[in-house]
Each structure stands twice: as structure tokens, then as C-alpha cells.
Amino acid sequence: MHSSILGYLSRWILSALLVLSLLLPFGVRAADAQQIAATLCAACHGPDGNSTDPAYPKIAGLDRDYLAKQLRYFASGQRRNDIMAGIVATIGEADFLPLAAYFSSQQPLPGKVRNARLAEIGKQIYEDGNTETGVPACAGCHQSNGSGNARFPRLAGQHQAYTLQQLAEYKSGRRAADRLMVSVGQRLSADEMKALAEYIAGL
């Protein structure tokens, strides 16, 4: 009789532990993502993904799957970036999606146009492309408001310097995971890139 009570208790404790161990990873995962964001990402991208330093992109509000894909690209070397390669190496692949979900759910802050005339030229290219050189309208994929989706990322409000840098990397082929954008980059002139970056900042 004594042993049967012990047996009952131990079975109950075991079951409770089992249930707890099943639930634990989910709680830890969400907490992990926020903690990783605060400790590893916030210094450059800002705590809510709205970076203030134009050298680092705003990532708030970008599509979750798009962000997770970029983390995988940094990890595999498909997207070459020494800073990001070093950082993603310290994060487990299992954390990519929750981390992406965290930044995706943050509210993106608007950017600022500094040269309205340049932005006007940028708008023309963004909406109409360049039929002479075969530049497609950016709006075709990224949408007129630049809000983007899983395949074509959000551009709206991005820092001019970052947009410009990425377009240059497409042109040079350094960023080549997306071949469509390599073609677009090759067809864009330096002036067109500047105008686009200016317009996109104001979207």
C-alpha cells in the first residue's frame, strides 16, 4: 500500500515533467528570439529593427520568410557579408524563423527624403522603369507603396545609403542569390540608383 502511493506519485511527477518538457522549448524559443534580438541585433538594427545608422538596414516590418531566408543566406555564404556571417554563426538555425518573426512584427518607421527633386526622378523609374535599357518598374514586384512580400522584400522607408549599397552589390554581382535583381542592377545607371534610393526612403 505504501509503495503503491509512491508509485502513483512518481508516475504523476513523471507525467508532469514530460508535459513540461514538451512545452518548454516553445516558451524558451520566443524568449530566445527577443533576447537574441536585444543582445546581438539591436546594436546595429535598433531594438525594434528601425536602425538609426544608415549603414545598417531597417528590418522592422519586412516579411518573416524573407528575413529568415536572408539569415540562411548569410549562414551559407550565398549572401556575402562579414559582419552578418560572424553573427549568424553564433545563432542556431532553429532560431532564424522566430528571430525573423520578431522583427517582422515590429512597426516600421518612415524614412526621410532629403532631395525632393531627385526623389521625383526616382519615382519615374520606380513606377515606369526604363524602357530603353530594360529596367522594369520596381513597383511591378515591390508594389507602388514598397510594402513587398515574402519573395520581393519591403523597401519603403529604407535608408538611402543601404538601398544604394545593395543596388551596387547587385550590379557588381557580389549579391547574386537573386538573379533577377542582378539583371536589374546591371541595367541601372549610378544616377538612377541614387534617384531610386532617394524615392524609396520616402515611401
Binding site: T131, A137, G140, C141, R151, F152
Partner: peptide, 20 residues
């Protein structure tokens, strides 16, 4: 069709200047 409409336009109407 999204990747086509940057040139062929929304609704696939092309452009009157004949470019697409």
C-alpha cells in the same frame, strides 16, 4: 505574372510606345 508586370504593366496592357 508579378515578375512580368514591371514591364508589361498591371493587367498586361503593355505600353503604347511599343516598348512592351
Amino acid at each position: 505574372f508579378v515578375i512580368c508586370q514591371g514591364c508589361h504593366r498591371v493587367g498586361a496592357l503593355g505600353r503604347a510606345d511599343g516598348s512592351y
